[in-house]
Design a protein around this nucleic acid. Structure first.
Lengths: 223, 223
DNA sequence: TCTCGAAGTTGACAAATTGTCAAAATAAGA
DNA sequence: TCTTATTTTGACAATTTGTCAACTTCGAGA
């Protein structure tokens, strides 16, 4: 007997997109106003608790209590804690991807362009503590079930960097022969860990932003 | 009433070192042969399962069953799953830190020195799939209780890079005025995410190693 | 070798958490 | 209003976690 298991966790938008799949059994509905409201409350609670306590110390029951909904409602919206975490990360990703997607002013020099992005990121991190770190988590260590096909923030950002580098390459600003995808990932990693250190230790953000920019520019600029 | 809670998870060596603390209540014992053997079996099982299934899908009972010890023994050695994971990560860290600590041949040029380290790392990763990723996990997302004072691999490696950079600075190989700690973290991040991408997508390891090296050298070398 | 106490293990048990589902509540249409 | 479809709910069953008194093993000393 082939069981039919519903994956009820992706954002309604994403779910609708995936719905072309024929054997995706159940209600496609984007969600009634009431249901969406429950989901919103759950995700807000999840966000608060995952950031405040971390994955380990957060239980599904804590989330539903914090959200002010019945315990069963949690399982109406998510398969389990991991599924809820992934939905939370997806939402954070949605909010954060635009920071990189939004194009810089055209034909800015390399350095200013990068510095501007870093400032965008740092600004966001200051006003949303913990969110970026959670969205950038190495999901493979938490689950090996490939996160139900979600594209995590790290990959999206790496892709955005790749696009930008391609642009700069066309304008002759970066050295030719660069592996642009690899470079994109390296930049994301350098920023994640460099920025993480800077925030943990309370370094001066402007100085750090300039320093990170300087190293990246030196690494990729045309000679 | 001030409860006394035992932290029984750190490696015996580390625990012994921390033991100067006066209010560290309990048995300092490095462990009898029998006890150490149980711990070894548990950690081996934890390693296997955490890597194979990830943190979420691994239960303490799975670990003790896999280890072939009684269920209670798990809690004899670890407070809970998180504690066990941290002990596992600590062990992996112990095995991996030498990769960077071990000094390269003296007065090698910058480029060859870095390339050599990357080759060391890639070699290790190929023969120990999943281990590095687990040891480098962003622990803050899993728990906000500062991981019981353990120094994670990322920080140790960043420190090692900092030392190396200091060395190169003395030899006049890197540009002056570098924030060496920040740079250390950036290098670790760039390698982690660049390398992670390369392994996931099965890129040619030699080429990637050279490319990563090239970017890092360009970023930090003296002009 | 034998005895004894300390150290370590064990699984049965209690406590806590997760996941299910029939019934209740709410919304929405006729 | 009445009827039907959707969503919520918390009581309940199933699973998992964590404890502990009894048991086993080890080793020192007689």
């Amino acid at each position: 007997m082939s069981e039919v298991v519903q994956d009820n966790s992706k954002s309604p938008v994403v779910r609708a997109a995936a719905e072309t799949t024929p054997d995706s059994a159940p209600a496609p509905t984007g969600g009634s106003k009431r249901k969406l409201e429950s989901r919103r409350k759950l995700l807000a609670a999840a966000k608060k608790l995952f950031i405040e306590r971390g994955y380990h110390e957060t239980r599904p029951q804590d989330i539903s209590r914090e959200a002010g909904v019945g315990h069963g409602t949690f399982y109406l919206h998510f398969d389990d804690k991991l599924d809820c975490f992934l939905a939370f990360a997806e939402e954070a990703t949605l909010a954060l991807q635009d920071i990189l997607k939004e194009p810089s002013e055209q034909d800015l020099p390399l350095e200013e362009s990068i510095l501007e992005i870093i400032h965008r990121i740092f600004g966001y991190v200051e006003s949303h503590p913990g969110l970026l770190a959670a969205a950038m988590v190495d999901i493979d260590v938490i689950t090996t079930n490939d996160s139900k096909g979600r594209k995590m923030l790290v990959d999206q950002w790496a892709e955005s960097w790749t696009d930008r580098i391609s642009n700069w390459e066309r304008r002759g600003l970066v050295m030719p022969g660069l592996d642009k995808v690899l470079t994109g990932y390296m930049i994301v990693g350098a920023m994640k860990h460099g920025g993480g250190y800077a925030f943990r230790d309370g370094l001066d953000k402007d100085r750090v932003a300039r320093e990170i920019t300087r190293l990246i520019v030196r690494a990729i600029e045309v000679n």
